[in-house]
Nucleic acid binder design. Structure first.
Lengths: 200, 200
DNA sequence: TGCATTCTAGATCGACCGATCTAGAATGGT
DNA sequence: ACCATTCTAGATCGGTCGATCTAGAATGCA
C-alpha cells in the first residue's frame, strides 16, 4: 500500500453539499467546487468520479442530515406534537435562510429529476418517506384521539406533504414568518378539528 | 422605411416560451432557441435584445396565458366553485404534462429568482396575485355562506396558495391523479366545514 | 430607381465548461 | 530502501456557450 488520503471524505463532502446547495447542479463549476472543498481538481475526480456522482453523494448526505435528523428527533414526541415540531423546524430554517438556498431536495426535483430517471427515483423516494412519516403521525394521533379522524390519514398525510413543499417554495421568494405561519394554521386546524360527536 | 419583419413576434415568442418552459433558462441554448422559433440568431438578437430579455418576455407571456386565463375564467363562477375549478384545472394540466415541464413560474422561482432581484419581483408578484385571487374567493364565499368562516380568509388564501405550489412540485415527480386529488381533499373539507353553530 | 432596413447563412470572438493528463513531491507498508 | 499510491499545481483537450459580425439577397417606401 501507499500514501493515505490527507483529507477527510466526510468533511470535503459536507463542503461539496454546501456548495451544490447554494449554487445548484448546473451552475456549480467543478473548479470552484474543488476550491471550496479545499482539495485539488485531481483529488476530486480521483475520490468521487465525476461531477454527477459527487452531486449524488452530496444530495444523499443532505437527505440524511436534514430529513433523517428531523424525523428522528420528532419520533420521540407524541404524534400531534411531532407534526407541529416538524413544521416549526422547517419554518425556522426557511426564515433564517438568508442565502435563499431553499430545500436541496426540491431544488433537485426541479433541476435534475425531470430529465434524469436516477434523480427522479431519489427525489420520489424522499417524498414517499416524508409522506409515510406524516401518515404514521396522523394514524397514531387518530388512534389516541389527539388528531381529528374526519379525514382519512392517507389524505391528511398527502395534504401535509403538499403544504410542506408549498411552504418551502413560497419561502424562496417571500420568506416572511407571518406568511409561513399563517399558511400552516388552517392545516393544523384540520388536524385539531374533532368530529361533531366529539364536540362538547 | 424599409423591409418589414417577416415573422410574427407573438408567434415566435410563443415558441420561445414553449422552449424555455421545457428546458429552463440556463440549459436553453440561444442557438437551439432560435431554431425552434424558426428565425435566425441575428433576428433573435435584433428583435429581443439578449437571452435574458427574451426569457423575461416569454415568462410574462406565460403568466398572462396561464394565470390570466385561469383566474379570469373562474371569476365568472360562484366563489366556492371557482376555487374548485382552479384546482381541477391545475390537476388536469399536471396529469397531462407528459414532458414534466411543471409550472414555469415555479421553475423561474427556483432557477432565477434566488439570485436575480428582477425575477424575484416578477415571481413574488404572481404569487401575490394568486393569493389575492384566493382571498377574494374565500371572502366572497364566507359572505354568502358557501365557505366556512372558522378560519380567517387571509389564512385560508395563504394555505390554498401553498397547497397549489406543493401540488405542482409533487406532480413533477409523482404525477398520479389519485395523489393530487387526495391531497386537495382535506383543503376542500376545510372550506366546506361549517361552524358548530351552523351544523344541523 | 434608389436606399434603408431586415432577411439569410454562417464565421468569429472570448470565455468557461467537464474531464484528463503531466510532472514531481510526499508518504507509508512491504 | 523500494515502490505503489496520493498529493500538489497547473497545462491541456474538445466542446459549448452568449453575443457579435460579415456578406449578400430580399423587400418596401420615397
Amino acid at each position: 500500500m501507499a500514501r493515505l488520503r490527507e483529507f477527510d471524505e466526510e468533511t470535503v463532502l459536507a463542503a461539496a453539499m454546501a456548495y451544490f446547495w447554494l449554487h445548484g447542479y448546473r451552475t456549480a463549476s467543478v473548479r470552484d467546487l474543488a476550491r471550496s472543498m479545499g482539495i485539488t481538481l485531481a483529488s476530486l475526480y480521483n475520490a468521487f468520479g465525476d461531477k454527477r456522482a459527487l452531486y449524488r453523494r452530496a444530495l444523499d448526505s443532505y437527505i440524511e442530515a436534514s430529513f433523517g435528523a428531523r424525523s428522528g428527533g420528532a419520533q420521540a414526541l407524541p404524534p400531534r406534537r411531532a407534526i407541529d415540531a416538524f413544521f416549526q423546524d422547517v419554518i425556522e430554517s426557511a426564515v433564517n435562510d438568508v442565502q435563499r438556498k431553499g430545500c436541496m431536495v426540491i431544488n433537485a426535483a426541479l433541476e435534475l429529476a425531470p430529465h434524469d430517471p436516477e434523480f427522479q427515483d431519489i427525489v420520489a423516494g424522499v417524498l414517499v418517506r416524508i409522506e409515510a412519516f406524516f401518515q404514521r403521525c396522523v394514524s397514531a394521533g387518530q388512534a389516541d384521539g389527539s388528531i381529528s379522524n374526519r379525514q382519512p390519514a392517507a389524505d391528511l398525510a398527502k395534504h401535509l406533504l403538499a403544504v410542506l413543499l408549498g411552504l418551502q417554495v413560497l419561502a424562496r421568494t417571500r420568506p416572511q414568518r407571518a406568511l409561513l405561519e399563517g399558511l400552516v394554521r388552517p392545516a393544523f386546524a384540520l388536524l385539531d378539528d374533532r368530529t361533531p360527536s366529539d364536540r362538547p
